[in-house]
Write a protein that binds this DNA or RNA. Structure first.
Lengths: 201, 201
DNA sequence: TCTAAAATAGGAACACGTTCCACTTCGTCC
DNA sequence: GGACGAAGTGGAACGTGTTCCTATTTTAGA
């Protein structure tokens, strides 16, 4: 499992196409930031990206695909940014908590965007499998790297299992926050408790 | 936190109204079982329940409310059925795993219904808070009761936290299965691993 | 450079969740 | 029994995701 993000599947066509794709995703993020999931209307995205509706659907076969792809791009950005920063914390649990809380704070600073992307992620069906899987891998690799910053490739099965459980809790907590069921503080608390339960070293 | 389900808020009007409500939920379950989330179309539900569209919306203000209410009824049924059966397993972990696997198997025997209800649950926003909260409480109380079958009311904060984490994992696993990201076997495995990580007694 | 194929524009049309309205039926109180 | 408000009926209408069609533009290859 390489940590580079160059996948042969990914290189999509010409510069003009890459540009259109970027414009579309930019428009998506902009609209999502302003009004959340409901504000990301396909006609509005097309107009703002200066693209025809049919073209939008050629690039992204559904609103869910569009939003999950946007999530993927944002997440890659976050993950890259995180990789360059030193990871604070003495114990594994501390490091994981720090990273998750920082990431969560980042998302909470743009609630509408987070709502849009999280809703899309949770609503995605198997036709979005590929994109979803990418995001899942990214999250797991981010967590395992934080757990073992030395990168000795000494990942046990248990490590991966723990990372997965933490990812699940994080997602649930996020959904709870996005849907207004819990506050930001509760969300952080929920994650912290789970991590301490799982990582008692 | 009582385990009875009699809430003063719940008693809704006349027998005719209870009957209509039941017919609507029955129709919802039937349609969901046949074709999943997409097949639960409001016009179809209204027709099958022999109720006007406006009446359907009077009882349930949105498709999500409708499906989450159906989930709640089904879950209550499951929880009641579970309460009468002895809980097999020597250790806490064994008992929790048994119960969760049995419940999961039950849901997997009707994939379309499970898909419909899970999708709705994940997509619900804060306007469905009340119903969602009910379901969450039901799940937590079910789990803590399995963890402490004697009912000595000796629940620690940690117990509740663990139950919550397990609930999160279960939900994530369910979503993974519903959206075709993981198989039934993987779902069971995922839950089992998480429970063993959390309950090492 | 010319041409065929692919991509895009522009927009009509359809499906389903949701709202709304005019009318009818039901239940309750005098 | 009559009156009045609540509840229900039937269906039109609207918004947004999605599909589809034709004309035009861009791209790639001979």
């Amino acid at each position: 499992m390489s940590t580079t993000n160059s996948l042969a599947v990914e290189d999509l066509g010409s510069a003009a196409q890459r540009d259109r794709r970027k414009r579309i995703l930019d428009a998506t993020i902009t609209l999502a930031s302003q009004g959340g999931f409901d504000a990301v209307q396909m006609r509005a995205v097309a107009e703002q990206a200066d693209v025809a509706l049919g073209t939008l659907y050629r690039y992204f076969p559904s609103k869910i695909h569009l939003l999950v792809s946007a999530l993927q791009r944002e997440f890659e950005r976050t993950e890259t940014a995180l990789r360059d920063r030193p990871i604070e914390g003495d114990t594994t649990a501390e490091r994981v908590i720090n990273v998750l809380k920082r990431t969560t704070r980042g998302m909470q600073s743009d609630p509408q965007l987070t709502e849009a992307l999280t809703r899309a992620f949770m609503f995605a069906d198997n036709s979005v499998q590929a994109e979803i899987h990418q995001v899942g891998m990214l999250l797991t690799s981010m967590l395992t790297r934080v757990m073992h910053p030395e990168g000795h490739a000494e990942l046990t099965e248990e490590d991966v299992a723990i990372a997965r459980v933490i990812g699940d809790v994080w997602l649930s907590a996020l959904v709870g926050w996005v849907t207004g069921r819990s506050t930001a503080a509760e969300t952080g608390q929920q994650i912290e408790v789970a991590v301490r339960l799982l990582l008692r070293d």
